[in-house]
Each structure stands twice: as C-alpha cells, then as structure tokens.
Amino acid sequence: MKHSKTGEPLVVVSGAKKSFGHFEALKDVSLSVERGEVLCVIGPSGSGKSTLLRCINLLERIEGGAIFIDGEMIGYRRSADKLYPLQDAELARQRRKTAMVFQRFNLFPHLTAAENIAVGPIRVLNENPKAAREHALALLDSVGLAAKRDAYPAELSGGQQQRVAIARALAMRPQLILFDEPTSALDPELVGDVLKVIRDLAASGMTMIVVTHELGFAREVGHRVAFMDHGRIVEIGDARAVLENPAQQRTREFIAAVRS
C-alpha cells in the first residue's frame, strides 16, 4: 500500500463531538487517515457519517475534541489553554486543504461545466483565468467529459454532473477529498462511471474519505473501513477484515441487512 509518505497522518480526529439540539450526531469520534489512504465510512443513516465529513470540511463546527489536517488544528486557534473560533477568512483558507463531493452534486447551475471547475482556482487561488480554464478542460477530459465543457449542469445526467463535481474538487488541488455518498442520488446504470473516476483517483494516491453504501466498492478501493452507528465508530480496520469478518455484532447485522 501507498500510505505514509511521512510518518504523520494527514487527518487526525480526536474525540470530536457535535450535537444538533438534543441530537448527538457525533459522540467522541476519533480516527486518523494516513497520506494516500482511502478510508471508507459505512453505517445506517443518522449514524453521523455525513456529519463527520462536514466537520472535517468545516461546514459544521465541532463542539468538543479537535480535528487536525496536515498538523494544523481546524476551526479554532489555540492560545495558551484557550480555543478561539476562527473567522470567515481563516476558515476559508483551511477549507482549501480539503474538497468535498456532495450527494446532490451541488454544481453551480449558472455556470458551464468548465466554468464550474475553473471558478474556484480563478476566484479563490487567483490563478490566471486562461491557465485555470485549460486545467479545467484537462480535468474534464480525465473524467471523460471533454465534450461537455460548455454544457450547463441542467443539460447533464446525474452521473455526468457528479463527475464534473469531482473535477471541480480536484481543480483546487486539495490534500484530501471528502465524498458524501457520491453515488446515492444516481440512477443505478450511472453509478459505475462515477465509481471508476473515484477508483482512478485512489490509484493515483489521493487521500480520500468516502462515505458510501457501496460495500463492494468499499472492499475493493478502501484501504480501511470504519463502521459508524449512533454517532460512534463501532469498528474500524482493514477493509476486507471489517467487511468479511466483522468483530462486532452490530457491524455484522448492518452488513447482512445491506447485502440482503
């Protein structure tokens, strides 16, 4: 496996807690992801999988514990024994380390496929518009959509939109890509193309956390699999071991239910 170019993990989640009102979405979640590793997260809905991703991407702010990306604590600044919540500009800077691919794609409907990909590099990274557009076209080509450069999202199928969304994430040159059920909103015959793109990314050594219901995909592409339930990580370990020979009863039940 290609993990650990350096000894330090890229992502460290340490005792993360998050509640929405009385609902505890994350209860003391800890895990780490090595550089180049693909971690797949499985579990029933409401188990906290998506919330974990959203906290890592700072769309939500954790209320306890800490998350480190590339050695930097995110969401807060530490001064002596106090934590200060970071402001908008700092949060935006930290978010650039990660990119997110959403279940519902969330492409910008008023921009073409190429513009969707280039808008981040141009506006956020201040890249030269021409260079950014060329990079966008190269990325579109790499996800098999070179011909759709001038198409608006409404003119693309779900699978095509999701591949554009992956290219948009890649254009920001993130260290980590977070996938939030990337194939759950797709028609079954379109799932394969999207999974292929993610598989290629994994082979290229990109660090990824993938929340998914595709157990076959998790077994094949994931280096490790984490099973979450009720806001906790029930079991985490080698993908094959967790999926084929789970140690916990709850994991066994879930896998059996999904497979049936």
Partner: peptide
C-alpha cells in the same frame, strides 16, 4: 447546497455571495 459547495472550494462569504 450552493452555499456549501461554494464554501467547500474555499470561498469566503463575500466571494460566495458575489460569484
């Protein structure tokens, strides 16, 4: 989802609103 997608590519609040 549009707000979240804009944030996820590192836009500040003002960039997100404008673009």
């Amino acid at each position: 989802g549009q707000y979240e997608a804009a944030q996820s590519i590192g836009m500040t609040r003002m960039m997100m609103l404008r673009y």
